[in-house]
Write a protein that binds this DNA or RNA. Structure first.
Lengths: 234, 234
DNA sequence: ATTACTAGCTTCCGAGTAC
DNA sequence: TGTACTCGGAAGCTAGTAA
């Protein structure tokens, strides 16, 4: 009984066989069709089957001109193991992303928009509070954080604030992500904002909270802060 | 944004990165260590990272001499898809294995053993009945079924009959698998036996039932029968 | 219609090494 | 220490084709 590891290239082939029900019963398969399904040539499929057979991952029995194929227990276990390790790695994903940056004096712009009634009412309803008028602006200190910042909006937000129109102009949506400032002990219910139409680039993080973060956490402009954004789902 | 498919060889690399937590945050990784973990050389790991980066599956930021690496949403999705298709193929496994063969006249041997008290009492307790004295012997008609027969004992049996000793000699265990004869309408509670010490080869199937299968199903020697063995778990 | 051999091309990998 | 280049060999694939 050969003991060699299964080859990566063979995975798709076994998966295809299993999908055809070739686990406990023999199933007739042609190499042409198999090749098509795995995106390879007929010859490649033929080679796969040969190698899988000599390695003990499948069994074949000649049926006329074709073959009937069955995945052995060994082959099945191999795919199970691989599947398990994929799942494990997917589920080991951390549920938070951490940023570091320096507090800078906000231009007051973000604060102005967030205080509009169209936003304020939604904040109250969806976050449970009206933000302190004055967002905390954090300038990220490393390219690394800016890259992470860029993909932040891809994640499921903890609250989604709809855009609206006041008759004169329209205002974009806002995604809110629950966040902790520094060790999280001084500020409750902070949230990082991702705006549909932002006036900043990826190097900036805007944080809101029911109270003034600077006062409550004793932070002043130029101080370095950690912002830990919690991601609800993967 | 490149649209090429992910390469099979890169899967292990991404999985390793994910296991290191490189989903939402950047993680420092050296190519030497990465190579070791995926069973490849440092150079191979380096190439993987380069290719994964240009394909948009990961992001890297130089941190001194090393790199900090993060798996992008694109890379994550790719592994998710693969994982999903693996799972799907594993779960699509049929729950029964079907045999075809001809009924032959039993030599009475199997029937004799099964009627021993050491077996009979266990059958009553674990199957709920005492088998009709006389097992149905089915000679499999195709290599295909014999191969499947060989691995039958690997599966979880619906009942396990312990071996025993009568002071003179010892008797081996018996694994029972719930089975249906032909369309299953005439025979209830049939079971296929896998014996620790069988006197047949893989071309024979021994079936028991509370009543005489031949009489109840109107089968005579030489008739072709289908035996469908139900597998409780995968 | 099948499977699978051969030849040739491409890709992948490891060793050596530059930086 | 690091990364990643070049180069030679191994492995994988395709096309053509035999059986």
């Amino acid at each position: 009984m050969p003991t060699e590891e299964i080859k990566l290239q063979h995975i798709l082939t076994i998966v295809e066989l299993l999908s055809k029900g070739a686990r406990n019963n023999f199933v007739e398969v042609t190499t042409t069709e198999l090749g098509k399904r795995i995106g390879r040539s007929q010859q490649a499929a033929s080679k796969h089957l040969l190698e899988l057979e000599t390695s003990g991952y499948i069994e074949r029995v000649k049926r006329g001109q074709k073959f009937a194929v069955r995945v052995t227990g060994r082959g099945f276990t191999e795919i199970q193991n691989l599947s398990a390790s994929l799942r494990a790695s997917l589920e080991s994903s951390p549920t938070a992303v951490v940023f570091e940056g320096n507090v800078i004096s906000g231009m007051g712009e973000g604060a102005y928009y967030m205080s509009l009634e169209g936003y304020r009412l939604q904040f109250r309803e969806k976050l449970g509070y009206e933000p302190y008028p004055g967002t905390l602006n954090v300038r990220l200190v490393d390219q690394l954080y800016m890259n992470a910042r860029r993909e932040l909006g891809m994640h499921q937000p903890s609250a989604f604030i709809d855009g609206f129109s006041d008759g004169t102009r329209t205002y974009g949506w806002v995604k809110c992500y629950r966040a902790k400032i520094n060790d999280g002990s001084l500020i409750e219910s902070a949230a990082v904002l991702v705006l549909e139409r932002t006036h900043y680039d990826d190097s900036m993080l805007e944080v809101i909270s029911p109270v003034s973060i600077k006062l409550a956490a004793g932070i002043k402009n130029g101080d370095k802060v950690k912002v830990r954004v919690e991601l609800p789902s993967a």
